[in-house]
Nucleic acid binder design. Structure first.
Length: 275
DNA sequence: ATGACTAGGTCGCCTAGA
């Protein structure tokens, strides 16, 4: 099963690029962030015509997340469970169960700068996410937590770590907050296959950053530890950043060797007959 | 670097992104 995440920076502006990439990469599940559109205006039809189901949680101008799936989407949840804490006005979280796998698609706040109110919001948002996982994810659950985290987990995830040390997306408090979300429950899919620096998922639109390959790795696909033996690959689809009028982020894609539940049942029958 | 790009909203500048 191919699972992808992509901050598209407006689903309507990027629609043809997204459709082209789906036709090229053929993901089973595609999680989008920064859709920048209210639910009624989300272009669902082009995805349905390709055989996908779509769930969305969006707002005007900013934020917005969506899950696009070839398989049946169940147990849909939008935002955090406690509506009274004020973390659901910005549409940054959508989750569902697909083929028995819990998919949690996040668009973590950027935080602006570390001395801003937005930074406080980012840290508190991550605490909410950690609490959500504490409350809802049990030891044997199969979980994929993916999206735009707006945090480089370590210095090797930044093209010039010394320049950005302690700053937004690189600060210790953000990394600790992310660690507290992950804390032994998940593995970073990309780092299973690539230990070196020089691999980015985001390049600033400014200063010719992509041509100079001055990027950051801030989009991540975390899988629960019980899925580690199923993980076959994790790649950054860097070529999408070369598109005309691209998103500033590239998609990230994993291959998890788990099948449609119905197919599993057939496989089990075959095994039984052979015995 | 009070900078640079890009998108969306209300409209010729603002917020926001990261």
């Amino acid at each position: 099963m191919l699972i992808a995440t992509w901050n598209v920076n407006s689903v309507r502006t990027r629609l043809s690029q997204i459709i082209n990439w789906i036709n090229h990469a053929n993901p089973d599940i595609l999680c989008l962030q920064e859709t920048k559109v209210i639910d009624d205006d989300f272009p669902i039809k082009p995805f349905e015509e390709l055989g996908y189901e779509v769930i969305v949680s969006g707002q005007k101008s900013y934020n917005g997340v969506a899950i696009i799936s070839k398989f049946k989407i169940e147990n849909v949840s939008k935002g955090f469970p406690n509506e009274t804490l004020g973390f659901n006005e910005q549409k940054r979280l959508i989750s569902a169960v697909i083929n028995g796998l819990k998919i949690i698609n996040v668009y973590v706040p950027n935080g602006s700068s570390i001395d801003s109110d937005k930074f406080d919001y980012k840290i508190k948002w991550l605490q909410q996410l950690s609490s959500l996982l504490d409350g809802q994810v049990k030891g044997d659950d199969l979980v994929c937590l993916l999206g735009d985290f707006n945090i480089a987990p370590s210095n090797i995830d930044i093209h010039a770590p010394q320049k950005y040390e302690g700053g937004i997306m690189a600060s210790q408090i953000e990394r600790e907050s992310l660690f507290n979300v992950i804390k032994g429950r998940f593995i970073d899919s990309f780092r299973i296959f690539e230990k070196d620096s020089g691999h980015w998922t985001w390049w600033d639109y400014r200063n010719n950053a992509f041509d100079l390959n001055k990027g950051w790795r801030i989009d991540h696909i975390y899988i629960s530890k019980n899925l580690s033996s199923k993980l076959k690959s994790c790649v950054i689809e860097r070529s999408q950043r070369e598109n005309l009028k691209p998103s500033d982020h590239a998609p990230v894609l994993i291959n998890l060797e788990i099948d449609n539940q119905n197919e599993d049942y057939f496989d089990d029958d075959d095994d039984f007959l052979e015995i």
